[in-house]
Amino acid sequence: MATSTPSAPRTVQGPATPPGRTPPRRRRVSPGAVALYTVATLAALVWLVPLLWAFATSVKPEGETTVMPPSWLSANATFEAYASVLARGDVLRWTMNSFITTVIVTVLTLVICVLAAYGFSRFDFRGRPALFALVIGGILIPPQTLIVPQFVLMTQLGLVDTYWGIALPQVVAPVFVFILKRFFDAIPRDYEDAARLDGAGPVRVLWSVILPLSRPILTAVGIFTFIGAWNNFLWPFIVTNDPEMMTLPVGLGTAVGQYGIQYAQVMASAVLGAIPLLVVFLLFQKHIVTGVAGAGIKG
């Protein structure tokens, strides 16, 4: 309340300064701003507690993790737990499995969804409305309810405990066909007309006209497919029995059983499991934020 009053006289001169900018920063810090920034900082710190606590536990010597009351810092901080976890090798193996299957899912999803969205957006063919309705209807089906017949199918195809068995059922993402088609629909046809006049075929038009114009939405769909596939638990959990073939989320689920009450090692494996996508997030933070905005507001 008090924060806005000092700016009132300044806005009188406002039109002289370029518009669109918020009123100049006040020099004196108002009590409202102090309260706001204090609350915001505290909220953010509270939200980080689980991650910080996992890290704090993971660098304690195993004997100190169960000392009560809990302490945040250990005088004997060590990376021993990480060394033990990495020495077993399974976390690295699971990370590699996750990486391979996630790349397969992301690439295949992007390719087939882009092609389908382009087909639905730009061409008229027999049965198109019915087929599109069929695809859209698929958004409503919760994939979790199909795990039993999907597993039977994978058994029949001999794909249990294989990368393809983990990846293939995950590439069917009708919602992305829907989102991409809406985006393609909004691209003016004039660009394509010019390309077509130059003799470009449908594939060429897609590749050199539509796709370059769709980079933001493709990045967003790609990132969210990647995050979704990397973190998918139920399907990989069902289709893998062999610990060697488990993905990271599934493998880590067995960690408590393996490490027992060695909490530093359990937390070290959790931190190791968190790192890959946290790195992806830090690298692509801007794309993720704008991607959510695009998908959420337009879709």
Binding site: P50, N231, L248, P249, L252, A270, G273, L278
Partner: peptide, 10 residues
């Protein structure tokens, strides 16, 4: 962005 198992372990 955390895998569900990382969340549940923590």
């Amino acid at each position: 962005v955390l895998p569900v198992t990382v969340m549940t372990l923590i």
